[in-house]
Amino acid sequence: MTEYKLVVVGAGGVGKSALTIQLIQNHFVDEYDPTIEDSYRKQVVIDGETCLLDILDTAGQEEYSAMRDQYMRTGEGFLCVFAINNTKSFEDIHHYREQIKRVKDSEDVPMVLVGNKCDLPSRTVDTKQAQDLARSYGIPFIETSAKTRQGVDDAFYTLVREIRKHKEKMSKDGKKKKKKSKTKCVIM
Rank of each mutant, 00 (worst) to 15 (best):
V125F: 01
V125S: 01
V125N: 01
V125R: 01
D126E: 08
D126L: 05
D126K: 04
D126M: 05
D126S: 08
D126Y: 06
D126H: 05
D126V: 05
T127Q: 08
T127H: 11
T127P: 07
T127E: 12
T127A: 10
T127W: 09
T127G: 10
T127N: 12
K128A: 11
K128W: 06
K128Q: 14
K128S: 13
K128V: 10
K128F: 09
K128T: 13
K128M: 10
K128E: 11
K128H: 12
Q129F: 10
Q129R: 12
Q129W: 15
Q129H: 08
Q129A: 13
Q129Y: 09
Q129V: 11
A130H: 06
A130S: 07
A130P: 04
A130R: 02
Q131I: 07
Q131R: 13
Q131S: 11
Q131D: 09
D132Q: 07
D132W: 02
D132P: 01
D132S: 06
D132L: 05
D132G: 05
D132T: 05
D132M: 05
L133I: 09
L133E: 05
L133S: 04
A134P: 02
A134R: 02
A134F: 04
A134S: 06
A134C: 07
A134L: 03
R135I: 08
R135G: 09
S136Q: 13
S136W: 02
S136P: 02
S136T: 10
Y137M: 14
Y137R: 02
Y137G: 03
Y137K: 05
Y137F: 12
Y137P: 01
Y137T: 06
G138C: 01
G138F: 01
G138Y: 01
I139R: 01
I139H: 04
I139A: 04
I139L: 05
P140W: 00
F141N: 03
F141V: 04
F141S: 02
I142A: 01
E143S: 08
E143Y: 03
S145N: 14
S145T: 04
S145A: 06
T148R: 09
R149N: 14
R149L: 09
R149F: 13
R149I: 03
Q150G: 11
Q150P: 09
G151D: 09
G151R: 03
G151H: 13
G151Q: 13
V152Y: 13
V152T: 09
V152H: 10
V152K: 08
V152E: 07
D153H: 12
D153Y: 12
D153L: 13
D154L: 08
D154H: 08
D154W: 03
D154A: 09
D154M: 08
D154Y: 06
A155Q: 01
A155I: 14
F156I: 13
F156K: 00
F156W: 07
Y157R: 14
Y157W: 10
Y157H: 14
Y157A: 14
Y157L: 10
T158Y: 08
T158P: 01
T158I: 03
T158G: 05
T158A: 10
T158R: 04
L159T: 01
L159Y: 00
L159S: 00
V160S: 02
V160H: 03
V160M: 07
V160R: 02
V160W: 02
V160N: 02
V160Q: 05
R161V: 01
R161C: 07
R161N: 09
R161M: 02
E162H: 03
E162F: 01
E162C: 03
E162R: 03
E162M: 13
R164W: 07
R164I: 14
R164V: 11
K165N: 07
K165Q: 05
K165W: 01
H166E: 04
H166P: 01
H166S: 10
H166F: 12
K167I: 02
K167Y: 03
K167V: 02
E168K: 04
E168G: 07
K169S: 11
M170S: 12
M170V: 15
M170E: 07
K172Q: 14
K172I: 15
K172P: 14
K172M: 07
K172L: 10
K172W: 06
D173L: 08
D173Q: 06
D173R: 05
D173F: 07
D173I: 01
G174W: 00
G174H: 00
G174A: 07
K175R: 07
K175Y: 15
K175E: 15
K175S: 08
K175G: 13
K175M: 08
K176A: 10
K176L: 12
K176R: 09
K176C: 12
K176W: 07
K177V: 11
K177T: 07
K177H: 06
K178F: 06
K178P: 09
K178A: 12
K178M: 09
K179W: 03
K180R: 10
S181W: 01
S181Y: 04
S181E: 15
K182L: 06
T183N: 14
T183Y: 03
T183L: 03
T183S: 06
K184L: 00
K184W: 00
K184S: 15
C185I: 02
C185A: 13
C185S: 15
V186I: 04
I187E: 15
I187V: 14
I187Y: 13
M188R: 15
M188H: 15
M188W: 10
M188S: 15
M188D: 15
M188V: 03
